[in-house]
C-alpha cells in the first residue's frame, strides 16, 4: 500500500508535469515551481513528497491542492503531522561544543566522503583523485573561488564556482547552497544580520538551470533537507557519535551532493564563526 510519510513546507499548490525520473525520485515542475516525489532513501526536504510503497517509475502526473496531493490515480490527504518543517531555528547551542563539533565534522568528512568530491578543499591530499585536464582546471577554479568568497569578494567567488562540476546539480551549486546555510546558522548564533551577504550570493549564484535555482532559493531562505537539518542540530548540541551518524547520512545524498553541501557549510562556518 502506498503511504504518504511527509511533505515539505515549501511545496506550492499547482498542476505539475514530470521533469525527470531516477531510481529514488521523480521530479515534477510547474511554471515556476518544483516538487520532488521521493522514497525514504532520499527522505524529507523542503520540496519533497516522501512516499512509501510507491513505484516511482509509474508516476506520470502530480497535482497539489491545499489539503490533498493527487498522484496518478491516487490521492493523499495532507495532515499537519506529516508536514516537514525545513526551516532551521536554533534555540539552544553550546558554542564551545559547536566549535569542537565543527572540527569533528571536518575529520568525519575527510574520513567518510567519496574520493572525487569537494573535500579536496579541506584536505589537499584528495587532489590526487582529479586526473583529467577538466578535473585539474576545475580544482584550480574551485580553490580560486573559495579564496574569493572567504576574502569577502562574494560575487566573484560565487561566479567562479557556480554551475561547476558533475551532476544535474553541479558540485559548485551544492557547495554554494551549503555556504548559504552556514550564513543562516551563523547569523542565528552570532545574532548578526547576514541577509545582505546572503542576497549577494543568491543573486550571483542563480543561473538558467531552473532545477539548481530551486535548491539555491531554498538555501537562501534557510530551508534544508531533513538529513542536513539533523546534522546541524547535532552540531549545536550533540556528541561525536551522533554527528558521525548524521554526517554519514548526509553523505548518502547523490554521488557527492551531500558531501559538497557539507563542505560548503563547513567552509562557511569556519569563515564566519571560527
Amino acid at each position: 500500500m502506498i503511504g504518504l510519510l511527509s511533505y515539505g513546507n515549501q511545496i506550492r499548490c499547482g498542476t505539475y508535469q514530470l521533469h525527470s525520473k531516477f531510481s529514488s525520485a521523480a521530479n515534477f515542475f510547474s511554471d515556476d515551481a518544483f516538487a520532488f516525489v521521493v522514497d525514504t532513501r532520499v527522505g524529507a526536504g523542503p520540496l519533497n513528497i516522501v512516499l512509501e510503497g510507491v513505484k516511482l517509475d509509474s508516476l506520470r502526473s502530480l497535482e497539489i491542492k491545499n489539503d490533498c496531493i493527487y498522484l496518478n490515480d491516487d490521492h493523499f490527504s495532507l495532515s499537519d503531522s506529516a508536514l516537514f518543517n525545513s526551516n532551521i531555528q536554533i534555540d539552544r547551542i553550546d558554542k564551545n561544543k559547536f566549535q569542537d563539533n565543527m572540527r569533528f565534522l571536518e575529520s568525519a568528512l575527510i574520513e567518510y566522503s567519496p574520493p572525487k568530491s569537494l573535500v579536496f578543499l579541506i584536505d589537499s591530499e584528495r587532489k590526487k583523485e582529479f586526473i583529467s585536464s577538466f578535473d585539474l582546471a576545475m580544482v584550480n577554479r574551485f580553490e580560486e573561488g573559495v579564496r574569493n568568497l572567504l576574502a569577502g569578494d562574494y560575487q566573484i567567488g560565487v561566479e567562479a564556482i557556480k554551475g561547476l562540476g558533475y551532476g544535474l546539480t553541479p558540485g559548485g551549486d551544492d557547495f554554494i547552497s551549503g555556504f548559504l546555510i552556514a550564513l543562516h546558522v551563523s547569523q542565528q548564533i552570532l545574532k548578526t544580520d547576514f541577509s545582505q551577504i546572503i542576497d549577494i550570493i543568491h543573486r550571483a549564484a542563480k543561473g538558467s538551470n531552473s532545477f539548481t535555482n530551486i535548491f539555491l532559493d531554498c538555501a537562501a531562505r534557510g530551508h534544508v533537507s531533513e538529513k542536513f537539518k539533523k546534522l546541524i542540530f547535532a552540531l549545536c548540541s550533540s556528541n561525536e557519535n551522533t554527528i558521525e551518524q548524521y554526517t554519514r547520512e548526509l553523505l548518502t545524498v547523490g554521488a557527492t551532493s551531500g558531501t559538497d553541501q557539507a563542505v560548503g557549510f563547513l567552509i562557511g562556518i569556519k569563515g564566519f564563526m571560527l
Binding site: F134, R141, G163, L164, G167, P170, G207
Partner: peptide, 10 residues
C-alpha cells in the same frame, strides 16, 4: 575526457 552538464561554467 569529461562528462558534465552543459553549464556555462563547465
Amino acid at each position: 575526457s569529461a562528462v558534465v552538464m552543459g553549464t556555462k561554467e563547465n
